[in-house]
């Protein structure tokens, strides 16, 4: 499973009339999940979320690729 870098979000049973809607739906959920959290709590939430999603994806080659793409944009 190659890492999908194209827009890929959608919700079953929902009809979209604008291409940006599913991405915006998700982004609102994501930011909403951090409501009322301190910065440390937000970091913990993000870490838990990454672990959950990694387990769901399962394929380590895909995860390795995602880690590499993520790291490309962050200078040490």
């Amino acid at each position: 499973m190659a890492l999908n870098l194209n827009p890929n979000l959608s919700e079953a049973g929902k009809r979209y009339f604008s291409a940006y809607s599913p991405g915006d739906d998700f982004y609102e959920l994501l930011i909403g999940a951090h409501l009322d959290l301190s910065d440390e709590q937000s970091e913990l939430l993000n870490a838990r979320l990454i672990l959950l999603l990694a387990n769901h994806i399962g394929d380590i080659a895909t995860l390795r690729e995602a880690l590499a793409v993520a790291r490309e944009g962050v200078q040490a």
Binding site: N4, G23, H34, E43, L45
Partner: peptide, 18 residues
Amino acid sequence: ASRTFRNAALSLAKDHAF
């Protein structure tokens, strides 16, 4: 957290359609 996600999306936008 919200600013970090925003900047992450912007930094991914240059190279990746998603």
